[in-house]
Write a protein that binds this DNA or RNA. Structure first.
Length: 430
RNA sequence: GCAGUCGUCGCAUAGCCUGGUAUUGCGCCGGAUUUGAAAUCCGGUGUCCCCGUGACUCGGGAGUUCAAAUCUCUCCGACUGCGCCA
């Protein structure tokens, strides 16, 4: 959510950003109008309250001195003021909640490097790492590979849960586990603190970190407790500082979170999304940074550097893409994706997303830095990046490391986490 | 899950029974004093707005009342004991 002062003092910045995104200005103007309405009502309410408070102060004194007539006169006056106040109060609250509902739907101000574009075709290639693997045989798709090796059981998962859930079995499950350990160790060596979060959050905390539309299309709700399953550990690891002032000397706060992630994926279809590429539940190792505003752009590059070092070490061929205006969500100010080469699909596909959310989440969550207990401390910036989403990493590894017989070579850096094993063997039951 | 105790400004605390301006200490910021520091003293230190002799604020919400930190209901959270359990 954007700071309300931006609408009051620098609305042109927001308008210019909407122009770049190709969005109309009407919602901006409406926020400004509702804000003015709210402030007018608020001021009027305050004046009436003041009158009422002043009058009510006389009641005690009048009663004490036995002047019942005077007391009754004031009571009548105060009752009338009370009615007017409560009428005006509901209008005031209505204007404010309307203002903020709308304000939450207005996207973050983009960084100037973000390219203009209608949709994902407008994204620009920032860098290319590694080289396309060449095979002396016809490479199989990951769907064929998981089936012939009996590593994934979608059918039985559908029986007990529903579509897009899966059992991961045998050596592929072990590789998944190795990826988690490798990625956490990798980032711990770079001074990121390992954190395991709750996988459910309440609504108030969740509204601070995500787009409102996500409640319908992305998150699972948990009844009767009104919790939401997290879509990524970014959400709890950012929201954990809600309503806090973080001592400045502890910034930047670097964390590596690991959690199961849950996504409803409403409206997603397509042949290329078969198998375990797009699923309702997966594990993700995530990088999170809470930073001072002046440090956040350098730290955004640090997050990207961590990703490229990590994925280079896994020996995966990928492109780094600078996400364009039309493909950007509401929260990020700038976003890089890593897209791995998937031979079976003959295209590059998203495996990592690396964002600087600037103060957009922190405003809504009211996360400040400086001295706790002091007024008007500045708002922090929040950044997040995938390190490894294991289901997609497994796809990229299977597709790029496959052998002629359908088995998979284990990337060298993962072998120590696999007891020295160099090749994934099929599961012996299906 | 049951029972009890509790939740007050960054931390710690008083006020609640008996409704009427939210107390004090620590920390932090600024100033005075000092060669400098410590100590001491003075002021500041929740939110909002049109910045005032303004409004709001005592875990959240609702109610009673002219008036609620204070009384009532409800939800949330913490602690203790019992029960259950990986």
């Amino acid at each position: 959510m954007l700071d309300i002062n931006l609408f009051r003092e620098h609305a042109d910045m927001i308008r210019a950003d909407h122009d770049k995104r190709g969005l109309p200005h009407d919602r901006i103007e409406e926020v400004i109008a509702l804000d003015q309405t709210w402030r007018n009502h608020l001021h009027e309410t305050d004046q009436l309250r003041r009158e009422k408070n002043e009058a009510a102060r006389g009641i005690g004194a009048a009663k004490k001195s036995g002047n019942q007539e005077e007391a009754q006169r004031i009571l009548a006056q105060v009752a009338d003021l009370g009615q007017r106040i409560s009428d005006l109060e509901s209008m005031t609250n209505e204007a404010m909640s309307a203002r903020d509902r709308l304000r939450m739907s207005i996207p973050n101000i983009l960084h100037s490097d973000v390219p203009k574009g209608e949709d994902e075709s407008g994204n620009t290639v920032h860098a290319v790492h590694g080289t396309k693997p060449s095979f002396a045989f016809e490479p199989r798709t990951h769907n064929a590979l998981i089936e012939m090796n009996k590593w994934v059981d979608l059918k039985r998962a559908a029986k007990i849960t529903g579509s897009r859930f899966y059992f991961l079995k045998g050596d592929l499950a072990r590789l998944e586990f190795a990826l988690q350990q490798y990625a956490v160790d990798f980032l711990r060596q770079r001074e990121y603190t390992f954190v395991q979060p709750p996988v459910m959050m309440n609504r108030a905390a969740y509204e601070g970190v995500t787009d409102l539309g996500d409640f319908e299309t992305v998150m699972y709700g948990v009844e009767p407790d009104a919790y939401y399953m997290i879509a990524t550990s970014e959400h709890p690891l950012t929201a954990m500082f809600m309503d806090e002032t973080i001592p400045e000397e502890t910034l930047p706060l670097r964390m590596v979170g690991v959690s199961q992630c849950f996504r409803r994926e409403v409206g997603s279809h397509g042949q290329s999304d078969m198998g375990i590429w797009r699923v309702h539940q997966f594990t993700k190792i995530e990088q999170i940074i809470i930073a001072r505003p002046e440090d956040s752009w350098a730290l955004h590059e640090e997050l990207l550097q961590n990703c490229t070092d990590l994925w280079d070490s896994l020996g995966i061929h990928y492109e780094i893409v600078n996400i364009c205006t039309g493909d950007m969500g509401t929260v990020a100010a700038k976003k890089y994706d890593l897209e791995a080469w998937i031979p079976g699909a003959n295209q590059y596909k998203e495996i990592v997303s690396c964002s600087n959310c600037t103060d957009y989440q922190a405003n809504r969550l009211s996360i400040r830095y400086g001295q706790p207990g002091h007024p008007n401390q500045p708002i922090v910036h929040t950044l997040n990046s995938t390190a490894v989403a294991t289901s997609r990493a497994l796809v990229a590894i299977m597709e790029q490391y496959q052998l002629e017989d359908g088995r998979i070579a284990v990337p060298e850096v993962l072998q120590p986490h696999m007891g020295g094993q160099t090749v994934l063997e099929p599961c012996n039951w299906g």
